[in-house]
Structure formats: structure tokens, C-alpha cells
Amino acid sequence: MTQPFDAAMQAFAPALPLAVGLSGGADSTALLRACALRWPGQVRAIHVHHGLQAAADGFEQHCIALCDALKVPLTVRRLDARHAPGQSPEDAARQARYQALASVALAPSVEGAIQSIALAQHADDQAETLLLALSRGAGVAGLAAMPARWERAGLAWHRPLLQVAGADVRHWLCAQGQAWVEDPTNVDERFTRNRIRARLLPVLDAAFPFFRDTFARSAANAAQAAELLHELAQQDLALVGVPPQIKALQGLSRARQANVLRHWLRLGHHTTPAAAQLGELLDQIQACTTRGHQIRIKVGRGLVVRSGTGLDWSSP
């Protein structure tokens, strides 16, 4: 009987050459080993050294030894992933990691241009992401969790293990006799994701043994809904104009106003309004029936203001 990890890898068909994001943990170690065995000479590894903890040098040494054994070229990128004021440490590290992976993959190389990047998040990670989104009151875009494939920076990005439980990844590694390193921060319950992993997932496993599959279906349904909302927002933005005209906005339902305004702010101004900010803006748009009615509302990192017959954006 084909095991879940083997089945997932058999279904994985990326464009080659392929780069694998390698942290040194069980998941990325398994992914790199499986890819290197399947496509010898077509796989490279990228290790991002965040410099955030004392154990980081040990991760790097494991990655070097693993890649030497597998005869896989390794690039180590060191960076400063400290977070800015108001930014979560996890978000800062994640953004820095993606930027580093893309910059290495796009750099000229004697081995040929990398076509795809594979990341090792699995079904437990997907469930944690969905639970985090629920805890924050996320909309369908957040509930879509992590996509299995997407395009970014001219590269195809893949998460081939999203249908595989973390325990199945480790079972495969043990059967291979392959060692990995454990990140000590993964058991630090000061981080919300770690509390979910330690406290909620075991309870869900006991109560709903197939929760990983059902959560994945919910995330896929949310992703489809988010795609439809994006398409509708594009159509409505063409209708209301850029910047949006107040009269045209008033011709839409409140839900479509909210959808197109989020799209305008995200697309044109790289900001996302809080629910209360967006609600206040929608109330002001509804009440805007005279020429003298002013709108000046803090949204995201700036202000949405009335300018003539439409809305405009003001950034400090």
C-alpha cells in the first residue's frame, strides 16, 4: 500500500530545475531527500539562516552535511530577520525568508535557471494556519490558508505535502534512516501557532480523526470563494473608477462596496482596512449626499479622504 508521503511525492510534477527551501527540520529534510532521489542532478537546496537563535548554526551544519550526502548544491543565505515595531516576529521572519528564497532562485547560476521552488508545509501546518485565521476573524482570503501552488517573482512555488500529516513525514524519514534537527522554538508556547499545535491538534485528532482532510476542503472552498470575490472586485473597480467615485459606489450593495474598496486599497495602496475602519468608511459613503460632506477616515497606514466626487488616499 502506497504511504501518504510517497503518494504525494509521486503526484508532484514541478518544472525543473527545482529548488527546495531547506530549514533542516524533519519536513524540509524529507522533501529534499525525496526530490533529490527522484530527480538527481536537477535539485538544489536553499537554507535561510535567520540569525535569530543560538541553534541556527547547528541547522546550517545539518543542511551542509545532508546536501553533501545527497550531492545536492546548497546555497546558504544569511539575513537579519528582526521584526519592525508593530510587526510580529513570525511575519517578519516569513517575509524575509520568502524574499531570500526568491533572490537566490533568480540569481544567475552555472547549473541553469531555477524554474520552481518547493516548500515543506504539510497538513498539520495547513490546519494550524486555518485555526489561526479563524481566531483572528479572517475573511475567505485568510480562511483559504496556504495554496498548494502559486506564481511569484516569475517562479512557480509548490507545497507538495499539504495533504500529508506531519507524523507521516517523520515515519517516512525514519524508514529512510535519515536524521533531522528539531527547532527548539517549535515547543515555545508563547507563540500562538505552537499552542495550537500542542493543545488543539491532539484534541481534534481524538474527536475528529479526519480533521486534516475536512479542514483542507474548507480551505479549498474558501480559496474558490476568494477567487470569485477577486474577479468581482476587478469588475466593480472598472465600474466605479480609480480612484472610486462615490455615486458609483452608492449604486452597489454594501457587500460589493466593501469588496471593491478592499481591492482598491490593497492593489493601489498596499494596505488592508480593519473591519471597524471599513465599516465606518461604508457608513460615510452612504451618508455622503451633499457636496459639503467630508470624508477623512484612518484606514490601514493612511487616510481615505473625499476629493471632489470621489475618494482618494492620503499617506503620512
Rank of each mutant, 00 (worst) to 15 (best):
Gly139Lys: 05
Ala233His: 06
Val260Asp: 05
Leu261Asn: 06
Ser253Cys: 08
Pro184Arg: 13
Ala100Lys: 08
Ala133Met: 05
Trp157Gln: 06
Ala144Tyr: 03
Leu143Asp: 00
Gly154Gln: 08
Gln235Tyr: 10
Pro73Lys: 08
Pro244Ala: 13
Lys247Leu: 12
Ile297Ala: 05
Leu200Gly: 00
Arg97Asn: 13
Ala54Glu: 15
Leu37Val: 01
Ala105Gln: 06
Ala26Tyr: 01
Ser109Gln: 13
His122Thr: 03
His122Phe: 07
Ala258Thr: 00
Phe59Ile: 00
Val169Tyr: 07
Phe215Val: 13
Gln95Tyr: 00
Asn259Leu: 14
Gln99Pro: 00
Gln284Arg: 14
Cys288Asp: 09
Ala219Lys: 02
Met146Arg: 14
Val20Ile: 15
Asp27Phe: 11
Leu261Gln: 06
Pro4Cys: 13
Arg256Trp: 03
Val104Leu: 08
Val304Arg: 01
Ala133Phe: 05
Leu106Thr: 15
Gly241Asn: 08
Cys35Trp: 00
Gln277Pro: 04
Ser307Glu: 12
Pro244Asp: 12
Ala96Pro: 02
Gln61Cys: 03
Gly268Thr: 05
Leu143Cys: 09
Gln294Phe: 03
Ala258Val: 01
Thr272Gln: 14
Leu143Ser: 01
Arg195Gln: 14
Ala258Phe: 02
Asp125Gly: 04
Ala102Arg: 07
Gln234Ile: 12
Ala93Gly: 09
Ser253Asn: 04
Ala179Thr: 14
Ala238Gln: 13
Cys288Pro: 03
Cys288Ile: 01
Gly268Asn: 11
Ala30Asn: 09
His158Ala: 08
Asp6Ala: 15
Ala26Arg: 08
Pro184Asp: 13
Gln294Pro: 00
Arg190Glu: 09
Leu143Arg: 14
Pro40Cys: 09
Val304Cys: 06
Ser314Gln: 15
Ala107Asp: 11
Ala133Gly: 09
Arg217Tyr: 09
Gly51Cys: 08
Gly166Ala: 13
Leu74Met: 11
Gln95Phe: 00
Glu60Gly: 03
Gln99Arg: 14
Ala84Pro: 00
Leu173His: 07
Ile285Glu: 02
Ala274Leu: 12
Trp313His: 09
Asp236Arg: 11
Cys67Trp: 01
Arg94Glu: 02
Cys174Thr: 14
Ala8Asn: 03
Trp157Thr: 05
Ala276Glu: 11
Arg77Thr: 12
Ala248Glu: 08
Pro273Tyr: 09
Val140Lys: 09
Pro160Cys: 11
Ala223Val: 04
Ala69Phe: 01
Asn186Ala: 15
Asp188Lys: 07
Leu278Pro: 04
Ala81Arg: 08
Ala100Tyr: 10
Leu229Ser: 12
Gln224Pro: 00
Val20Gly: 07
Gln10Asp: 15
Ser314His: 13
Ala93Trp: 01
Ile114Phe: 10
Val260Tyr: 07
Ile114Asp: 05
Ala81Gly: 10
Phe5Gln: 03
Ser116Phe: 10
Leu79Pro: 04
Leu239Pro: 00
Leu311His: 04
Arg306Met: 09
Ile246Ser: 06
Glu231His: 13
Asp6Pro: 00
Ala287Cys: 10
Asp283Ser: 10
Gly86Ile: 03
Asp236Ala: 02
Thr271Asn: 06
Ser116Met: 11
Arg33His: 15
Arg199Val: 07
Val48Trp: 05
Gln115Phe: 04
Ala7Val: 04
Val260Gln: 07
Leu131Cys: 10
Ile295Lys: 05
Ala275Asn: 10
